[in-house]
């Protein structure tokens, strides 16, 4: 399995995110592209609001404000954000699901830059995901995302490395997302390089198990940073 292909499909997800958020499951949504259908993870009203809110993420981040703006765009009220018991996390979760579902449509044609709009919110989203209540749900979504990436990259292994590969890919995914938020290079070439070298490490050394801990590390740090930025003394 070529690292290049893996790298393409992984980078594809970062770009996919900003291209067609909602289309993915408005069309027939397929898990593993052709295995079986998956019911939409949010009911119609919630989906409508989340997809409008998603458009506000680039400027407002994964925040309750983005959610409020989305409810208004969708013809609802500020108070309607009560439809989301998990608040901003539902937006993060929407982001993860959307990327996974959009993946198969974009992997063959990784965005050529013109659409590769930066999300610039990775750290914040990861911080939300790392909140103790949301870690289980975050891990599930990240695992599914990693699964889809490996699948599209041509991996069909059924041995125990199946698990470790997915864990390590989630780690790289999170790390890349954090990296991307800092990346000022044209067309995210530095992110691409960063991603390539991480993937190479993964192939070469195969330190799969340690990788999961690293994911915790990344998200843990970004949580602390976000809290600090809010004036908490840690």
């Amino acid at each position: 399995m070529a690292p290049v292909r893996l790298s393409n499909s992984l980078l594809g997800t970062f770009r996919a995110a900003s291209i067609r958020p909602a289309n993915a499951w408005r069309q027939k949504c397929l898990y593993h592209s052709y295995d079986y259908t998956e019911s939409p993870p949010f009911p119609p009203a919630e989906s409508a609001i989340l997809s409008s809110a998603y458009n506000h993420v680039p400027s407002h981040g994964f925040t309750i404000d983005a959610l409020k703006l989305g409810t208004r765009d969708a013809g609802y009220l500020d108070v309607s954000t009560n439809l989301f018991p998990r608040g901003a996390f539902d937006l993060v979760s929407y982001h993860l699901v959307t990327q996974r579902l959009a993946l198969k449509d974009n992997v063959q044609f990784p965005g050529d830059g013109e659409q590769g709009k930066r999300m610039g919110v990775g750290a914040k989203a990861l911080a939300i995901m790392a909140q103790p209540t949301y870690i289980p749900a975050s891990l599930v979504e990240l695992a599914k995302l990693a699964d889809e990436i490996w699948f599209l990259a041509g991996d069909q292994s059924v041995d125990s490395s199946w698990y470790t590969k997915r864990a390590s890919l989630s780690t790289i995914y999170s790390a890349t997302e954090v990296f991307m938020t800092q990346d000022k290079s044209a067309n995210f070439t530095e992110t691409e390089q960063f991603l390539d070298s991480r993937l190479e490490d993964l192939m070469k050394i195969g330190r799969f198990m340690g990788a999961l801990g690293e994911w915790g590390n990344y998200t843990g740090h970004s949580t602390i940073n976000v809290l600090r930025s809010k004036g908490m003394r840690i």
Partner: peptide, 8 residues
């Protein structure tokens, strides 16, 4: 309630 309004 207005459309979008909440019962709690």
């Amino acid at each position: 309630l207005k459309p979008g309004g909440v019962f709690a």
